[in-house]
């Protein structure tokens, strides 16, 4: 279905798809995308390189290599996911692999912001609930789930759990206003006003 595979656009109320479980706390951006892949001028190949070193080590049994997980779109993680460097290559790699939403106990601040800028919601749930969700998915990886941002829950025939999301980012996704660029450029009149009053743009005469 092309709707799932195209990159996020506009209003994001729900993400539909299979789930993939990635266990462990403090998974840093160096692991998500090792530094050597930063030597690139486009994000387009990053999908294949996501978790490259971890995957090599696990020789085919890494969650991102397991057959049943190919095509999954919701990533379920544990605590402090995405810590470390500010590289946007990390969410880009996940997105290009196919991830459209994440649910975890907590996310590192910059990673969270980078995801939001791509239209990828990062919802949270307690350690206990994450555990339950992860167990349910592992029982039947072929199950299709719906992350519903309006109802703030994730559900399938295997069960339903509430998830949380800060109201600001939530509203941005629900209203399709997570794409900062177009909003920022739409304020051209205010940008000009700001420029007029900044001393260093006016020979310090203001």
């Amino acid at each position: 279905m092309s709707k799932v595979s195209s990159y996020p656009q506009g209003v994001i109320q729900q993400v539909l798809g299979r789930c993939i479980v990635m266990q462990g706390d403090d998974i840093d951006t160096d692991r998500i995308i090792p530094a050597r892949f930063l030597k690139c001028v486009s994000f387009k190949d990053l999908g294949a390189q996501v978790f490259a070193d971890d995957r090599k080590e696990l020789q085919g049994v890494h969650p991102f290599d397991r057959k049943e997980n190919i095509g999954a779109s919701i990533l379920i993680v544990n605590d402090n996911f995405g810590c470390g460097s500010s590289r946007e290559h990390a969410p880009q790699a996940l997105m290009r692999w196919g991830i459209r939403a994440l649910i975890g106990q907590s996310f590192a601040e910059i990673f969270y912001g980078n995801c939001l800028a791509l239209g990828i919601p990062c919802a949270t749930a307690s350690a206990k609930e994450i555990n339950q969700i992860q167990k349910a998915i592992e029982l039947d990886p072929s199950q299709v789930w719906e992350l519903n941002l309006t109802k703030k829950n994730i559900q399938s025939s295997l069960g339903s759990w509430d998830v949380a999301m800060e109201s600001g980012p939530l509203e941005m996704l629900l209203k399709g206003r997570w794409d900062a660029t177009s909003q920022l450029i739409s304020q051209e009149a205010f940008l000009k006003q700001t420029e007029k009053k900044l001393p260093y743009l006016n020979n310090f005469t203001k």
Partner: peptide, 9 residues
């Protein structure tokens, strides 16, 4: 001085 606008969110 640098604030242009308040944004949704």
């Amino acid at each position: 001085l640098h604030r242009v606008a308040e944004l949704p969110g």
